[in-house]
Design a protein around this nucleic acid. Structure first.
Ligand SMILES: [Mn+2]
Ligand SMILES: [Mn+2]
Ligand SMILES: [Mn+2]
Ligand SMILES: [Mn+2]
Lengths: 220, 220
DNA sequence: ACAAATTTTTAGAATCGCCTAAAAATAATC
DNA sequence: GATTATTTTTAGGCGATTCTAAAAATTTGT
């Protein structure tokens, strides 16, 4: 498989996991910052290789092999991200671009050994789950901060948007995975939220709140 | 720069370091297992980018930038080889192919951090020197086993042929970097050599002897 | 120095991945 | 249900990289 094919599979996989049903050509084009006609070309190629189910005008979905391949690439991407943070002291906002390259390195043995070196991590630096060798993975129990009620508490376990700008903003405000966060109040006007992060207080916009995942604490 | 361009630069660099003067189209084609016409095409492209000095029918050589780029790739290749052996327990016969992929990963920060993680190694698992950040590197003081006199002693510091078959042969006969080797006798008939490796004795063909580098011991 | 052998380049074509512009199919609107 | 609007595909083309076959330049051998 070529790098490009792998990138398409990954994009289709990610689009599948939000918004049900079949994936549109335009959605893929937007996700990959390319033109719809290029997507159509590639879908034909992927279909020829039985990596996607594609009939023209009918949208596309991954076949079993396609899904398996996508998961293998995502596994590599996330393991490399862990490696970069844990072993090479990169910050979580720096790793994605490098992992975009490293995810295409082709060696089963390499990735298994890397997995072992890192202690078989279950989540990457952004809180996303790392699929196992056989493609199995479970999403963590989590909820968007924006959906938490006033008075709700939880531990930060992931980000939805993992762009560098968002991650740097979080760093600046001491928000990191593992931090406890409590919803103190919610502004009706714009849905911004007053939250407590450890000892600090902060007012965050709805957009921010809807990109932060918490593991809600048990409410006894 | 594309992967292909990088591979050509590397090939030209390696050819330059053995056999003086300018490099022929055919030599590159053979080294890269491709056709001479493809080489000509690429030489034009590399020439347009000022990475090589090329005039048709006149052979080719690297420009200053071309040489610098080649050394950067070789630096990456060899650092990754060290990483694979030191951190992921690969054997020296397994690392080259994976490094052929990893050498194209593009991130200065990554390679600097990797270099630091490994303790700034000076040589790769095959005894080849690792160029520094600025392309500086010095070949180690070494001599082919085949050129050593009877009675000569030395420590194995590198291999010329680093193919998996040769490396596995060496493993099988307990020959590794750091091993002391002594030339006990030489057969006039085929130039094969009786050598001592640690406690063991072995008869090696001329071909083997001419692919093993020793650092000769001081003869006081 | 001339003919033959070898090396190197050109010409032309294929594949991959992308693009633009136009056509076709589908979805939305009145 | 006919007309728009949108989505998707096709047609045709471009750059990169490779190939085969043929032509051109260089080298070798007598
Ligand atoms: Mn990422
Ligand atoms: Mn991630
Ligand atoms: Mn190597
Ligand atoms: Mn090596």
């Amino acid at each position: 498989m070529t790098h490009s094919e792998e990138n398409y599979l990954k994009a289709i996989f990610h689009l599948s996991r939000q918004g049900t049903g079949t994936i549109s050509t335009n959605a893929i084009a937007e996700q990959m910052d390319t033109k719809p006609s290029s997507v159509t070309d590639m879908l034909k190629r992927l279909s020829d290789k039985d990596l996607v189910n594609y009939k023209r005008y009918q949208g596309v979905s991954l076949t079993e092999t396609g899904r398996y391949s996508a998961l293998a690439i995502i596994r590599k991407h996330r393991l490399w991200e862990v490696f970069l943070v844990e072993k090479l002291d990169f910050t979580w906002d720096e790793v994605h671009e490098i992992a975009e390259q490293l995810e295409h390195i082709n060696s089963e043995k390499l990735i298994d050994r890397l997995d072992a070196l890192l202690g078989h991590p279950k989540f990457d630096p952004h809180g996303d789950p790392i699929p196992g060798k056989n493609g199995e993975f479970k999403e963590r129990d989590k909820e968007l901060l924006s959906k938490m009620p006033v008075g709700g508490k939880g531990v930060c376990v992931g980000v939805k948007d993992s762009s560098a700008t968002f991650l740097k903003f979080l760093d600046k405000n001491q928000i990191a995975l593992g931090q406890e966060i409590e919803v103190l109040d919610k502004e009706e006007f714009d849905n911004s939220m007053h939250i407590r992060i450890g000892e600090e207080q902060l007012l965050v916009s709805h957009q921010i709140a809807s990109n932060l995942y918490l593991k809600p604490s048990e409410e006894s």
